[in-house]
Design a protein around this nucleic acid. Structure first.
Lengths: 211, 211
DNA sequence: GCAGGAATGTTAGAAGCATTCACATTGTCG
DNA sequence: CGACAATGTGAATGCTTCTAACATTCCTGC
């Protein structure tokens, strides 16, 4: 009944908000992505410890067992969120990488983009680094973007060539990662100074790389 | 009945292992600490996602509601674990700080101690940085140890005095924290090189501080 | 020493969550 | 059009956290 079946994907006309969405057809149409989005909402609102798969289902307007048609487990949904996070991060890094022609400044921009990503999308950032260890394939792509920038900077001799590019990239990643984590945790605890985290990243990276 | 009541604390004669401990008296005697220890065991074995307060209680050999006499909630037990972590970290940092007289080398030792702490006690480390934001009071003490070392190194002019000591300490903390996190997550993924994380820390900090 | 309250532990149970299974509805393809 | 795959539902299981009423033990003031 109800001739509303806009062919699979897209026939979902619930509200974006947090009220239990109303559906017009038996099938949702785009449940998988809706679940990921709903999960992100809840993660952003209540944090990981309060996260509940049942609540995601309720919010999306579907029975609590429906998610299992798309994800084997609650953790797999969170993994999908993390994967989306790696994609967004990858885009942020690539945008930063192409923002400037100077190889040294490029590294600073990328560091800033990393911490800004963490602050703009804490739900994604926390999810990415909470689950099981290991980068997804897209995580490796993100690292490659950084690695290329380091290689290029070494080629231009704007940073020392002393440790290998991989080691140096790892140091850079670790540094900005630490900055991102701590900036999320202790907003400005103890340091009244509210230097934007990206500035702090640029300063720290400058020192680290001898720029 | 049963004249075994070695006066409160200490009358607990369960095994250290993971089998449900047997108790001889009604009262446990040192339940609070036993719960923290049990929690650490489970965290080390199964990780945070599998952590269950009920299981801690079972393992310690006590009913599932007994923990609530000592902790208002499951999270409060985890907070106690985190607090213990900050104490251990503090000791590690102080030991490293007094290991050498050279102000510059001291900073490297402390960085190494930080990542070694994370690797030796991942249960504590993860718990400390998983819960609600903010350092406990003991966390601040740990930071103060680092801050003092930076101040001293600046006084000896072995590191630049350019950014304030607080900012520099924050950079150092962030850097070693990032190294610790990533070393726990990607053991040696992608880098066949298995440079001990402490060496990586020393190298990275040397570059950061211009040592 | 002993009464009685403060600590501490127990049992039973409410409410919520993850997961599964049998079943219902719908899209799709021959 | 008719079967089959995909997708969603309802009910049930066994876990979890947490509360409430009750039991035992410690300890303190008399």
């Amino acid at each position: 009944m109800m001739p509303a079946r806009t062919r699979g994907s897209g026939c979902y006309r619930g509200r974006m908000g947090s009220t239990p969405a109303t559906r017009t057809s038996y099938h949702h149409g785009a449940l998988r992505q809706a679940l990921v989005d709903g999960a992100r909402e809840i993660l952003a609102e209540r944090g990981h410890d309060q996260f509940s798969l049942n609540e995601v289902a309720r919010r999306v307007g579907v029975s609590t067992s429906a998610p299992y048609r798309h994800f084997r487990s609650r953790d797999e949904l969170l993994a999908a969120v993390a994967e989306q996070g790696y994609e967004v991060l990858h885009q942020c890094l690539e945008r930063a990488a192409t923002a400037t022609a100077d190889a040294g400044e490029r590294l600073l921009c990328m560091g800033g983009a990393y911490v800004r990503f963490a602050q703009d999308h804490p739900d994604l950032f926390v999810t990415m680094f909470r689950g099981q260890p290991g980068l997804g394939p897209v995580g490796h792509e993100s690292f490659d973007v950084l690695l290329s920038a380091v290689v290029e900077a070494q080629r231009c001799a704007v940073i020392p060539t002393a440790p290998s590019a991989e080691l140096m990239a790892r140091s850079v990643w670790a540094t900005v990662h630490g900055l991102a984590v701590l900036s999320l945790r202790q907003p400005h605890e103890r340091f009244g100074l509210d230097e934007p985290a990206e500035d702090l990243a640029a300063r720290t990276l400058s020192a680290l790389l001898g720029l």
